[in-house]
């Protein structure tokens, strides 16, 4: 496969959130603001790349029957690294992402790429795939967070330019579902 093609697929053509519908729990749960979404996106990108590297290196040593538990252990190790690093260096982001940091381990996107891609491809291809999917995920979360922040609070990335309260419903839980629903609709429209 063409590597450039491999790199660009995650952004639009196979965007994990809008097209593949993977990793929806953090996509809905943490995107109350754009910066939370982007932070979560980068944490997931790191885990994706590292687990893709390790899994593509050890794929020939893992018996087929126990491959899923082995993948999960690899992913969980990197999630723990992210968790401890973030708690030490970015405590405020860590607090606002809360439970969703350890829950990266059960993000279907990470396990899905490990199973469907990294366990079948060589190192370089797997790294590029992880980077592509991770950045696509970050883009989707940033976009969703941006939309929710804009409508809910009248600001983007904490910079407030519409005075007043905004539609609080977009910050609350129903707004996450509504915003994601309409964004997927837009991406369907653009795809045609």
């Amino acid at each position: 496969m063409n590597q450039l093609n491999n790199f660009t697929k995650g952004f639009i053509r196979e965007n994990p959130v809008f097209i593949l519908f993977l990793g929806l729990c953090p996509a809905l749960g943490v995107t109350t603001t754009a910066i939370n979404g982007i932070g979560m996106g980068f944490a997931t990108t790191f885990v994706l790349i590292m687990s893709n590297i390790v899994i593509s290196l050890i794929k020939n040593f893992i018996p087929a029957n126990v491959r899923i538990p082995s993948f999960i252990v690899v992913i969980a190790s990197f999630v723990t690294i992210v968790e401890l690093t973030m708690a030490a260096f970015m405590p405020s982001l860590f607090d606002s992402l809360g439970l969703f940091i350890p829950l990266i381990v059960v993000n279907c996107l990470v396990l899905g790429r490990a199973e469907a891609f990294a366990s079948k491809n060589n190192l370089i291809t797997a790294v590029i795939d992880g980077l592509s999917m991770g950045l696509g995920f970050t883009l989707a979360l940033g976009l969703l967070g941006g939309v929710r922040e804009l409508f809910g609070d009248g600001s983007i990335l904490g910079w407030k330019f519409i005075q007043g309260d905004g539609m609080l419903i977009f910050i609350l839980s129903p707004g996450a579902f509504l915003a994601l629903g309409y964004l997927i609709m837009l991406s369907n429209k653009v795809k045609k």
């Binding site: 129903p174 707004g175 579902f177 629903g181 997927i184």
Partner: peptide
């Protein structure tokens, strides 16, 4: 509408359900 078919309309419905649970 064609672009809303499938997953998008499900999310909008889930949003309304979440509103009810609020």
């Amino acid at each position: 509408p064609a672009a809303m078919k499938g997953v998008p309309i499900s999310f909008v419905a889930a949003g309304l359900l979440a509103m009810a649970f609020m």
